[in-house]
Simulated assay, not measured.
Amino acid sequence: MRHPVTAPPVPERVRTLAALSAPTHVSVAGSDVPTAAARGGVDGRGRPVLLVRPGEVLYGAPAETLVTVDLSATREVGGVERPRALLKVRGWTRPVPAAQARAAAVAIAEACPDGDLFAAVEGGAPALVRVDVCHVIYLTGGDSGVLDAETYLASAPDPLLPPAERMVRHVNGSHAQQLREAAERLTGEATPGEVWLWELDRYGATLRPGPGHLIRVPWAAPATTPEELEHALACLLSP
């Protein structure tokens, strides 16, 4: 009997989390410069793009400065941002060329909107600095490890990521009772607190019935379209 794949391959999952992440801190390797707060986002290839203002450590820094950028992925549930993953991207800085600035800004604006992006695109004071990946350390739930640049950059986020995130927001906002009932059917136990849809991808769904407790539910076969994903989710929530 063939068993279903229970979760995305690690590189795909890390790229998915990166696509939903925001930079929080940046540090310069081999330097006594303190770790600094970071702003920006992640481009379509999974590379951090930092929005750097005058006076900040990377403003005007030489190209190929070796840095580590912390990326944080969170999930808002019940009005509170909960951590999903921390990614530490080590790589070399490179100014985003003027011809690529608009595309870079658009790539990060949806997930990480920032008014200074417009000033950077127009050649204003903030600068856009890309980090070319050397390796990525990931810490998510009970999983951790390292991806080299070749593996990380050769992968891609879940192809159903945008509709999956819309479904997560809808279900968490409108179907609390069905989520609780689904968790109770899966565990055979009463669930006293709130249950949230924590992750949704082409391979399955993850419910969060409480802090530190996750329930992974694989689909019988990977979803290949948003309609298939929506159907699989509806079956999970149906009594």
Rank of each mutant, 00 (worst) to 15 (best):
E150M: 00
A176T: 15
M167W: 03
N172M: 07
W196R: 13
P159C: 04
G173C: 06
D148F: 00
P222R: 02
L161G: 01
L229W: 03
A221C: 08
T187P: 11
A183N: 10
H175P: 05
D158C: 07
L160V: 13
E194D: 10
A234M: 09
L200G: 00
E230W: 07
D158T: 04
R166W: 06
R185T: 12
H170R: 15
L179H: 06
Q178H: 15
L207F: 08
T191L: 13
M167V: 15
L197Y: 09
R202H: 05
P211W: 12
G212P: 07
A223R: 03
V171K: 02
L160Q: 01
E165M: 14
D201W: 05
S174Y: 13
L179F: 06
G204K: 05
L214I: 03
V195S: 01
E199Y: 05
E181P: 10
W219N: 02
N172G: 02
S155L: 00
L179K: 07
R166Y: 03
W219F: 11
A221Q: 15
W219I: 14
A182C: 07
E227I: 04
E228P: 10
E194G: 06
T191K: 14
G193Y: 12
A156E: 03
L233H: 02
G212D: 06
D201M: 04
T224C: 10
S155E: 00
W196M: 04
G212T: 08
W219D: 01
H231C: 05
P226S: 07
E150L: 01
T225Y: 12
Y203H: 08
R216N: 10
R216I: 05
V171E: 02
I215A: 05
W196A: 10
A223E: 02
T187H: 10
L186I: 13
A183E: 07
S174H: 15
E165V: 13
Q178F: 09
E228D: 11
G210L: 08
S174P: 10
Y203T: 09
E194Q: 13
L207V: 11
A190P: 14
E150Y: 00
